[in-house]
Computed example of a mutant assay.
Amino acid sequence: MKLVVVSAGLSVPSSTRLLADRLAAATAGRTPARVEVVELRDLAVEIAHNFTNGFPGRKLAAALESVTEADGLIVVTPVFSASYSGLFKSFFDVLDPDALTGKPVLIAATGGSARHSLVLEHALRPLFSYLRAVVVPTAVYAASEDWGAEGLPERIERAAGELATLMTGLSAPPKHDGHDGDDRDGSAEKAGDGGFTVVPFADQLAALATR
């Protein structure tokens, strides 16, 4: 499986990239996945040109393709003016509107104060719900005082576990149990054209609740 991390940090080193790396490591430790990082800072000029000429540059096109082909996505943005950064939003504005449909996404953000933590629920979650992604229940916010304090590692592990579970559920191979596949109660899992089993989202959430 392919896990793509989109980091919108601007500084070097970046707390946004640090959080992204920790989330990726925790997720990859729970399910076999090849991790690829997309640094939006390096794509800023090509993103701007895409808005003016309608065509992505070589690096931007490769990043958009990686996100589209990912089995799971981790997105992390710094908070500016009580919302996600303009660079972060611009990247997803140039992404194909259908690219994230049904894709598991873990949302996260960093900021200088804990009072910005609601950005996850009033800005990021609505954005990815609009793009028809499957957003994991636990979102992760890291304020300056959270680094090295209790709570952040636990939130990272919980969110990573939820993402890994969704990635595994959405990519699991079909099971052959000898039945003819007759879906009498409407709840049986069905194999798609890609040869994988689509697990109903309600069943995935129920599985998370028992962890």
Rank of each mutant, 00 (worst) to 15 (best):
V67Q: 04
V119Y: 13
S117Y: 09
I74S: 05
A133T: 04
L152C: 03
A114E: 14
T27W: 01
F201V: 15
P78N: 11
L73C: 02
E150H: 07
G178C: 07
T16F: 10
L23H: 10
A25H: 03
A99W: 13
P173G: 01
L60W: 08
L170T: 02
D180F: 05
A149E: 06
D183P: 01
G186L: 03
S11E: 08
I74F: 07
T16G: 02
R132V: 11
A188H: 11
R34N: 12
A70E: 14
L152G: 01
L10Y: 03
P78L: 08
M1V: 02
F91I: 14
G186F: 00
Q204E: 14
E154H: 08
V76P: 00
M167L: 05
P173E: 00
P200L: 02
A33S: 10
E162Q: 15
F88P: 02
G178H: 07
A82Q: 14
A26D: 00
P174R: 00
A143M: 05
K89L: 05
S83M: 03
K2N: 10
T138F: 01
P174W: 04
S7L: 07
Y141H: 08
E154T: 09
L60Q: 04
P137Y: 12
V38T: 00
L43Q: 02
L40T: 11
D21Q: 15
G111Q: 06
G86F: 11
V76E: 06
F51K: 06
L163W: 07
D96Y: 09
D146R: 03
F201S: 10
F128N: 13
E121T: 14
H49R: 12
L120W: 01
A164R: 00
A159V: 04
F201E: 15
G195N: 01
A114R: 13
L152R: 05
